[in-house]
Design a protein around this nucleic acid. Structure first.
Lengths: 167, 167
DNA sequence: TCCTAATTAGCCGTAACAAG
DNA sequence: CTTGTTACGGCTAATTAGGA
């Protein structure tokens, strides 16, 4: 209770009722100290209060709590930032992969086309060939495709409609 | 003021010095009400207190604050979950794209190989050809590659060392 | 009518505390 | 200690009252 008036005024609340906001100067000092050492010992905390006149009116317990909350906040923010960063990275990588995929698709198309052309040439001009078959020459276990239905639509699985918002 | 004893016991604190944890029953009731309406009006909140005897010892202001905090928590959790979901989606998509890329790379390799073979056949067996050039036949503005340095390393940009942790 | 001061309500950040 | 919860100060947007 104790309504504590309200806005306006520099009321030195003093009375340890509860809930005070530290001044910007105090925050600045605390942040600096936190940057030096995010997890000071109890002893170290007492030193800080003595060394820093700005913090002299803050109780040791409050200092302790402040560092606790500060660590917690940092952790949360770091995790959020990390997720955002990973997202950006993955999005960027996706873009690259899509472009590369596109490029390769085009390349395959062209190669298939040229291949068909050459195949025709070979067929027409060189019937007496030493080739064992008119089909695929090298078969390294994969891609046993008959070479005739490739010209387009070389996509394998279905990742067509991946909404995927920009984070 | 008002130390409020501490742990243990079912102390009916009553005196609203500060900081009380609501009982599981109260939480349950509040959660249920929240599920029905996450943002009740001031009037509605007063109704709730009257209707629900479990909440009768909680002040209107506290109810208001509870709903406020509850919304805040939900928001944070939803955002975190969303990021996680997007991350999973992107990671899965990346995997698919990588596989597809790999497949296309292999396909290009094979096609280039076959192409070379056919090209050689054509050259050897059919010198008197109507072909205008021994180089690329179709040139659709893109992929003006000389066809000789493709066999491997068809990667364009540098996405080699993308650490990319699994979320 | 439009504008401006005052009140109101919600959200954000954070202090303080409890539980684990 | 960390994590989660209660509570509050302060900012901002939305609403309203009163005066030019």
């Amino acid at each position: 209770m104790i309504a504590v008036t309200s806005c306006e005024g520099d009321m030195e609340i003093v009375d340890q009722g509860k809930y005070v906001r530290y001044t910007p100067e105090q925050i600045e000092a605390l942040e600096r100290l936190y940057h030096e050492c995010p997890k000071p010992s109890s002893l170290r905390r007492q030193q800080l209060i003595r060394e820093c006149p700005i913090l002299s009116n803050i109780e040791p317990k409050q200092i302790k709590v402040w560092f606790q909350n500060r660590r917690c906040r940092e952790k949360q923010r770091k995790e959020a930032a990390r997720l955002q960063a990973v997202n950006r990275k993955l999005t960027a990588m996706n873009k690259l992969l899509m472009e590369e995929n596109d490029r390769l698709q085009k390349q395959v198309s062209q190669l298939v086309y040229e291949n068909g052309y050459f195949r025709k040439q070979t067929q027409n001009a060189a019937l007496p060939t030493t080739n064992t078959s008119c089909e695929s020459v090298v078969t390294n276990g994969q891609n046993h495709l008959p070479m005739q239905h490739l010209p387009r639509d070389a996509s394998p699985a279905g990742f067509v409609n991946f909404s995927f918002s920009p984070v």
